[in-house]
C-alpha cells in the first residue's frame, strides 16, 4: 500500500480502515479467519450477544430471494459468559479491532451485558442491536420506539466508557429521528441499516418459506434503500454513520462513504466471498490513488447535489 491514509474515526473509535464485517456474518471470527486475513480489516462486529445463550429459531432459517436473502436466525448465540471464556482468547490472536454487538429483551439486560463486557480490554466498542426483526420480545419493538432507543442509549452509555454505536432499523418512517435521539442521549455513532422485514411463500404448499414467517432481507437488493437511509441521516444529523446494506464490492463501499458513511460493514457478501473485506480495502486504496484522494476521510459525505 502507498501513502494513502485509510484510517477513520467513528467518534472516539479509531479504525485503521473503514471496512468492518457486520454482526451475524462472521460468527466470532474463528471460521472465517481460515479464509481471509482479518488483521487487514478495520475490524469485526461479533454475532449479537445476549446475557444467556439463545438456541435460535427452528429451520428453515434462510431463503434466497432476487439479489438477496431472507434470514430469521433468531439471535442464536453462546451468551456473554461463554463468549468471554471461550471466544475472547481466540479473538485476541486475530489482531483486529473488536466491536461487540449486544441484543437484549429488556433495557436491564442491555445494561447488564454492557457492564460485564466492559471489563474486557480487547473490546473497542459496543454496537447495540435495537433492531433485530426476528425475535418476538425486544428487537424490532425497541427499534420502532423513539423513547426506547433514547433510554437504551442513555443507560448503556452510562454503563461503559467505551464508544456506543446504535444499530438502527430501516423499518421506521424517519430513520433520522432515531439518529437524533441517539445523538441527544450521548451515543457515539449509528450503524444503518439492519435488515428490512420481508417474507416469501411457496406457491404449491402456500406456506411461508421460513419458519418464522417473516425474516430480514439483506444483500444487494437492499442497497438503494440503505444508501437513502444513510443519506437521510447524513443530511439531517451530525453523528458518525456506519453504512450497511448490500455492499458487495469496493465500488459499493465508496458509494456508501460518499453518501455519508464514515465506515462501512459487509454482511451477506461474507457468505459468498469470505475474502471480500480484504479485496474491498485494496479496492478503496486503489480508488483513492486513482482519484488523488490522500485521506479516505475526505470522501465522507462528499456528495454533490
Amino acid at each position: 500500500m502507498t501513502g494513502i491514509d485509510l484510517s477513520v474515526n467513528v467518534g472516539k473509535l479509531k479504525l485503521k480502515n473503514p471496512v468492518l464485517l457486520a454482526s451475524g456474518t462472521n460468527g466470532y471470527g474463528n471460521e472465517i479467519s481460515n479464509l481471509t486475513d482479518l488483521s487487514k480489516l478495520g475490524g469485526i462486529v461479533t454475532k449479537s450477544l445476549s446475557l444467556k445463550p439463545r438456541k435460535g429459531n427452528p429451520p428453515q432459517r434462510i431463503v434466497e430471494t432476487s439479489s438477496g436473502m431472507l434470514n430469521a436466525i433468531g439471535l442464536a448465540n453462546v451468551g456473554v459468559e461463554s463468549f468471554v471464556k471461550e471466544k475472547i482468547p481466540f479473538l485476541k490472536e486475530l489482531n483486529t479491532t473488536l466491536i461487540c454487538n449486544i441484543a437484549a429483551s429488556s433495557i436491564e439486560e442491555y445494561v447488564e451485558c454492557t457492564k460485564i463486557l466492559t471489563a474486557e480490554e480487547l473490546i473497542s466498542a459496543f454496537e447495540i442491536n435495537v433492531s433485530c426483526p426476528n425475535v418476538k420480545e425486544g428487537g424490532l419493538e425497541f427499534g420502532n420506539d423513539l423513547n426506547a432507543v433514547g433510554r437504551i442509549t442513555e443507560k448503556v452509555k452510562a454503563a461503559t466508557n467505551k464508544p456506543i454505536i446504535i444499530k438502527l432499523s430501516p423499518n421506521v418512517s424517519r430513520i433520522s429521528d432515531f439518529a437524533k435521539v441517539v445523538k441527544q442521549e450521548g451515543g457515539d455513532a449509528v450503524s444503518a441499516i439492519n435488515t428490512l422485514v420481508g417474507t416469501a411463500f411457496n406457491i404449491w404448499t402456500k406456506k411461508p418459506k421460513i419458519k418464522n414467517v417473516t425474516g430480514g432481507l439483506s444483500g444487494p437488493a437492499i442497497k438503494p434503500v440503505a444508501l437513502a437511509k444513510v443519506f437521510e441521516i447524513s443530511r439531517n444529523i451530525q453523528i458518525p454513520i456506519i453504512g450497511i446494506g448490500g455492499i458487495m464490492n469496493w465500488q459499493d463501499a465508496i458509494e456508501f462513504i460518499i453518501a455519508g458513511s464514515t465506515a462501512i460493514q459487509l454482511g451477506t457478501v461474507n457468505f459468498i466471498n469470505p475474502n471480500a473485506g480484504v479485496e474491498i480495502v485494496e479496492g478503496i486504496n486503489a480508488f483513492c490513488e486513482k482519484t488523488s484522494v490522500g485521506k479516505i476521510s475526505d470522501l465522507i459525505a462528499s456528495y454533490q447535489i
Binding site: 456474518t25 460468527g27 471460521e31 454475532k47 427452528p58 429451520p59 432459517r61 434466497e64 436466525i73 457468505f271
Partner: peptide, 28 residues
C-alpha cells in the same frame, strides 16, 4: 438443508439434536 455460507458463520442450517436442547449446524 438450505444454507448460505457453508462453513458455520451464517447459522442458517440448524438441525435439532436428538438429546438435550439446541441445534447442530448441518454445514459444520
Amino acid at each position: 438443508c438450505s444454507m448460505a455460507c457453508g462453513f458455520g458463520i451464517c447459522q442458517g442450517c440448524p438441525i435439532e439434536k436428538s438429546s438435550g436442547d439446541g441445534y447442530l449446524l448441518v454445514c459444520k
